[in-house]
Amino acid sequence: MLIIVCPFCGKRPEIEFTYGGQAHITRPERPSELDDQAWAEFLYMRSNTKGIHAERWRHARGCGRFFNALRDTTTDHFVATYRIDEPQPQIEQPAEPVPPP
């Protein structure tokens, strides 16, 4: 069970959280103006990153807030968590494993 740092509540066990898929995918302002291809791209296409992956989590059994996280998919270690209204931190793949929080 991972430890995840909620940007609001701090370190909490994974069972308090739900996973929310890839982060930084914004719903188009005017979906009707998109052709089928572009809409399908938004709706279905997701990356399958090996390494640092930006993804959404929700502290569903805590403060209820969605937030974003950078997680190394090769180690399950969280490199950063940040609020929805914050930009993605620019973090390179760490050379050595990052200890958990």
Binding site: R56, R58, A60, G64, F66, I84
Partner: peptide
């Protein structure tokens, strides 16, 4: 409720 919160908070 989770879906509503998702749209409310993130979109």
């Amino acid at each position: 409720l989770a879906m509503m919160e998702d749209y409310r908070q993130t979109e």
